[in-house]
Design a protein around this nucleic acid. Sequence first.
RNA 1: GGGCGGUUAGCUCAGUUGGUUAGAGCGCGUGCCUUACAAGCACGAGGUCGCAGGUUCGAGCCCUGCACUGCCCACCA
Length: 938
Amino acid sequence: MKIPMSRELPKAYEPSAIEKRWAEYWITEKLFSVPTPPPGEKRPVFTLLLPPPNVTGRLHMGHMLNQTQMDIIVRWHRMRGFLTLWLPGTDHAGIATQMMVERQLAKEGKNRRELGREKFVERVWEWKREYGGAILEQMKRLGASVDWDREYFTMDENLSRAVREVFVRLYEEGLIYRGKYIANWCPRCETVISDLEVKHSDVPGKIWEIRYPVIETALESDQTAAQSAAGRPERPSPREFITVATTRPETMLGDTAVAVNATDERYRHLHGKKVRLPLMNREIPIILDELANPEFGTGAVKVTPAHDPNDFEAGRRHNLPQIEILDEHARTNANAGPYASLDRFKARERVVADLEEQGFLVSAKDYMVPLGTCDRCGTVVEPRISEQWFVKIKPLAEPAIRVVESGEVSIVPENHKQVYLNWMNNIRDWPVSRQLWWGHRIPVWHCGDCNETIVARETPAKCPKCGSTKLEQDTDVLDTWFSSGLLPFTTLGWPEKTRDQEVFYPTTLLITAYEILFFWVARMIMFGCHFMKGHQQDPAIKKASGWGDKKDDSVPFRQVYIHALVRDAERQKMSKTKGNVIDPLEIIDRFGTDATRFTLAAMAAPGTDIAFNESRTEGYRNFANKIWNAARFMFMNQPADQSSAVSRQSSAGGVCGFEARTLEDRWILSRFNRVTKDVNAELTDFRFHEAASGIYNFFWTEFCDWYLELLKPRLNSDNGGEVRVAAGNLVRLFEAALRLLHPIMPFITEEIWQAIYEGQAPAKSIALAPYPQVDERQIDLAAETDMAILQDLIVSVRNLRAELKVETKMKVPVEIYAQDRATRALIEQNRGAVERLANVETIAFVETSLAKKGGSRNTARFDVHVVYERKIDTQVERARLQKELDAVEKEIESKQRQLGNDQFLSKAPGKVVDGMRSRLDELRILRDKLRKQLEELG
RNA sequence: GGGCGGUUAGCUCAGUUGGUUAGAGCGCGUGCCUUACAAGCACGAGGUCGCAGGUUCGAGCCCUGCACUGCCCACCA
């Protein structure tokens, strides 16, 4: 691909003009594709699995944050020489996709049942082929440096085969079983869903108290005796009632008992009795069970084993019948007698009305009702009995707990580790079957003749027990998370043993949102530890990659980084219903991908949510523009005979060929190395915000505002040699800074970097160039100290000029007193810089303090006085001085107190004590000068 | 009912193991179209770090309590 490139850059940076071009270039050149490495590969390896977005998904801010962080880490590793594999793909997203296509069908006036399963599934595949790639296309705009040659889809044949393999193995190991249990049922999706897929909330509603008449029995005499013992009236009322409370009165149609606690004295006389169920006119027993809490309500509770999980358990304990009164649509069925064929809420109304009419309703009170709704469609879920496949989870959870406890898998930030462990320690069996059509069909067949259940990897020809060919495959599909939980190894060729696994498994890192810690992360760890048990990563690679101390290579990843949630500017969670969703693509259109990425990076402090604020993005768009213009300046100042000043050899990563001749050269080189050192450390700890702001400050403040300004005279010098050095330094430093910035802002850095080399770049892309690494020898403390003094001097003069209201263009003479010889020498040597940057005509050094002169500034190292006829506003100046003096005196006092404290002197580190002493010395000088100045003002 | 987090400048947020002067961006004020950049430059104002105690030579950071505020988990009728 020919790279269009020009050193005549437009004045304002236009991201849209370049971003698309580079995104395409990276893909067509296959820059990020990683073929299976040959044996003997020794490079360190970095592997990252993209959390697969749903095929139905549209890119939202959460994705973008997630992908930006991943891309930063990935590009950073790649530039540091890691063999870097980032695996992209999409998830078939069972319910979501099926709903999407069903909606489409509905528009055509059809439904899936008319179509039939086979045709419907074909239809979903069509939809997937047509629209399923949308989110990955959107990803490309973000610049995500994934290996597109390895793109996967969770229903690809190879991944599906692995899913069947896993199911069969688990079954054979006794870790999968089938049973009739009560579970959350979504009447709209018509499938069972797991606890995790239910959202709980309390909503205003009602609680109804209902009385059930007690049936008098032959045991009455005993009861009476018991009552007397309990100090009750000797005679029971002719019609005794037992009162229960419920927030779902319609379920009483399915009641098969009333429970009281055995310890509850109030009900002792009713032990062994029965009640007559109102409306249904059915006799049901009073049972003694822990289910009834004497502290709550009346202490008596109705028991509906078919429609409540607690009652289900109680029902099992007491062998109670399970009477289902609701069907899969949550409509009442024939068991509801006169209330059959009603929507559940309609049934509720009728039941309440009739109870009231017949005198069974005791009360109806306002109440906050706990309500579970379907995560997908928002429908109120209904606990319902059905036959499902379950994964026995404890044996899988134990190793998954161990590897996190031991740090074989580390979770960052660490507080999520505890959350993970809490959940895992209380984990319950996982219902994995779903009554859907779209997904991995369960590899189980039922024999139509002998009813045998056959669990097999491939479709069996006949029943192994009776030889019948009347076999029907189980109609259910697997929970979407079942297949995505396998991805760390199935994408690397499992169940075959492959070279890819040897090299890339365990994956290095997982970056994901907190929300799917249980859904996905936990399942990956369980499956990884189970199915990759005994796996060993290529030892040379493992060591080179920095994981030599890890013992367990079965884990799916070495590290998990949990990132925050992106909220809107008001800190509200973004949601479609609230209408406060910020569309990242729209932000990108307006500010550019680089600026948007930078925003997310700069705000991504680990552990805190991000309130996405557009004004920040605008600021970072400006930052990109700043870099752009600095580049224009750089190109403008390249001598004609020095078209490519940068060595084509890539250096070890630092600034290559820089000739530090002057203070500003030594200073900027030192600063660059310091920032480089910091950024590398910060990225190691996922402190994206610190890395981003470090680079921002370096580029803008130090490089542009100071270094470029100091360089200008040298670039405009008549001395060709000097110009050459200055221009060369400029371009070399710039080149290195671009590499430093590249992981966060890949597009603009690529554009300028390529332009620097004019088609002769040492690599196909800056993304393949080395990442800057600190060269400690280039850190120059003296240069940094000296530069700070000069900056202080220049700012002081600028400040005085502003106060004296010197016309901007007018140069003024200044007088400087520096008692310290070194300081004076420093200023003398750099007087040109001071004159230029502070707009000074001449500098005159004097031998006595200038503190008494108006229009002066004093520091511990120097006094500077601007010679100008206009007088300062005495009032304002006095106030300013007084304020400063107060602050200084206050600080002196506190320092003196500390330095006078023996405990402090003996306990505090010497560095701190020395630092405080010299600071105190400076403060005293400053105080004296300020006092003199105040005296002078009178 | 449990668990976790937040409270720092007008706004949005940083502040890694406690250590000398608490930072940034935006916004605000003043002056500048200075030949890279007005999406810019220069200078400036603005904070008793939620409240009350405690530990320490030293606390924005550690401990206790309180207030307000978010989130997650949980089968309480």
